[in-house]
């Protein structure tokens, strides 16, 4: 909506010459320059190259944790989101309780809590499988998934509620059950609409995964800190870490913009 007027405004300013000046993605150009400079520095400097190869393993771990955590949050979030629109008061209350609790606690505290309270209890007392505590991938993915399930549940809920009531009625009038209506009519439409915000949650989770360094999960930030502890080169270390996060989130946000444009450009 805003971009529509923006586009028209930009068009008028440039009198139809080439790229509209106001719409030039200056931020992108600046970052591109920063990238090129950093790339140059990295590949012309032995130290940077060493640092990069040292923390590459952490980078892989960060991506893995985010993908796994996000996959879990997608499913758990959907279940809780459905609970949030349920007419059953017990289900609704439980879902709301979950959302309020996990949105009300900082991510770092969720991470500590999961690592030192929930997971030990589940792993040793309930499942009797203490080796879970040594699985860094799970230890990292679980708290992120728990927290993000709450945020994503709210996105699912908003998406479901954005589907017009008439759609539900049309489906029910054909004899479809409540579950069939959700599955075939409401959710497919809701999911199309929430793809962009869901993409943004992935980026947010990727960045929040750096908090896992606090409990010793060997992800990107953790390796970066170790590297700095070994080399005492704070500037170089954090530069590399920040650079890697930035590359990842920028690529992803370009992806989200692409999805946004596709889903925004009318229905089919």
């Amino acid at each position: 909506m805003a971009s529509e007027s923006e586009r028209q405004g930009g068009g008028r300013l440039t009198h139809g010459v080439g790229l509209p000046l106001r719409r030039m993605p200056y931020w992108f150009i600046i970052i591109l320059i920063f990238f090129l400079v950093t790339f140059y520095t990295i590949f012309s400097s032995e130290d940077y190259r060493d640092t990069l190869s040292f923390i590459a393993e952490g980078l892989v771990f960060t991506i893995l944790i985010t993908v796994i955590g996000y996959a879990i949050a997608l499913v758990v979030g959907l279940v809780i989101g459905l609970g949030r629109v349920s007419r059953n008061p017990v289900i609704y209350t439980l879902a709301t309780l979950y959302v309020e609790v996990f949105r009300g606690v900082p991510m770092l505290v969720i991470i500590y809590y999961a690592r030192f309270v929930i997971v030990p209890w589940v792993a040793t007392d309930l499942l009797n499988q203490p080796q879970i505590l040594r699985n860094d991938l799970l230890i990292g993915a679980i708290p992120l998934a728990l927290g993000y399930a709450a945020y994503m549940a709210e996105i699912y809920r908003a998406g479901i509620e954005s589907v017009e009531r008439g759609q539900n009625e049309a489906a029910r009038s054909l004899g479809m059950s409540h579950v069939q209506t959700m599955r075939y009519i409401v959710l497919p439409q809701a999911i199309r609409r929430i793809l962009p915000p869901m993409g943004n949650e992935f980026i947010a989770m990727l960045k929040d995964s750096s908090l896992l360094s606090a409990i010793g999960v060997p992800e990107l930030t953790y390796w970066g800190r170790n590297r700095i502890a070994a080399t005492y080169n704070t500037f170089l270390g954090w530069n590399t870490v920040a650079f890697l996060y930035l590359i990842l989130s920028l690529i992803l946000s370009l992806g989200v913009k692409w999805i946004e444009r596709r889903s925004g450009s009318g229905h089919h």
Binding site: G166, Q167, A170, A171, S173, I185, P188, Q189, R192, H267
Partner: peptide
């Protein structure tokens, strides 16, 4: 049932 606003499934 047929509705005023059609209510076809747009997807």
């Amino acid at each position: 049932m047929v509705f005023q606003r059609f209510e076809l499934f747009p997807h």
